[in-house]
Amino acid sequence: MCGIVGLFLKDPSLEPRLGDMLTDMLITMTDRGPDSAGIAIYGDQTAGAAKLTVQSDTPDSDFATLEDDLRRAVTGTVSMTVADTHAVLTIPNDYVAATRGYLKNTCPGVRVMSHGETLEIYKEVGLPRDVAARFDLRGMSGTHGIGHTRMATESAVTTMGAHPFNTGSDQCLVHNGSLSNHNSLRRKLRRNGVHIETENDTEVGAAYLTWRMQNGATLGEALESSLNDLDGFFTFVVGTKDGFGVVRDPIACKPAVMAETESYVAFGSEYRALVNLPGIEVARVWEPEPATVYFWSYDTPPTAKAA
């Protein structure tokens, strides 16, 4: 199963409530995925700075001196905000690669969950309600976000197997379904030098999109080609810096419901996830078509392109 929720705000006055609304939607989807949960939230941006969200199973020791250590390793303003097992590192844009290298070499217990200018990803094993409480998701504000509740089918229940997956700067992916060709595709991508950490099928889907975009495809093109190259069942929701997209495989067994009002565009695996959104009674509610790539963005009009 798995549950997906997404919310793209058109009305800026709702931004302080984004985390609260997404948390309610996420908890409603607990029945679809009780073993882990995650959220990608697009929040504040600091000019010239990037955000790395990192995770550690032993945050007390790993995060104790990390901020001071990074200040010595990086020129410019560095700050760290810890939330349970996660921490958001704000660093100068030019030092993203250097910081990642530093973490890899000197902090083996610290894993990078996401990088970008506005994106933060939080995910852990446990009931969505408990995961949301650990990170105080309700208190988060932002322009848009996507969340996921996982019922594992293809790989172990671990933090790294939870969704969302970071696919590039300020980009992320969540998935409901199961990919059946993930082993062969993982081998192919690894031969092409793509780093894939786990045996998880969705991570392969995320790595595939990243690899396509690194080779010149736009996100839309990468999603379109995924319909040919990925075998199995999927409803994908992708987050980008300025919006989000939805694509379902041609068979479209995995459910998806969208709702749009003047204030927001919302996604839910089921209508249940949307019932407490403001104005849902008068929203346009519909099911996204199979094999069609949808995008909502702050910068361009919405698109729906049959692949």
Partner: peptide, 9 residues
């Protein structure tokens, strides 16, 4: 059974 709106799959 009558559905006033849409029906899913």
């Amino acid at each position: 059974v009558v559905i006033d709106g849409d029906a899913s799959q």
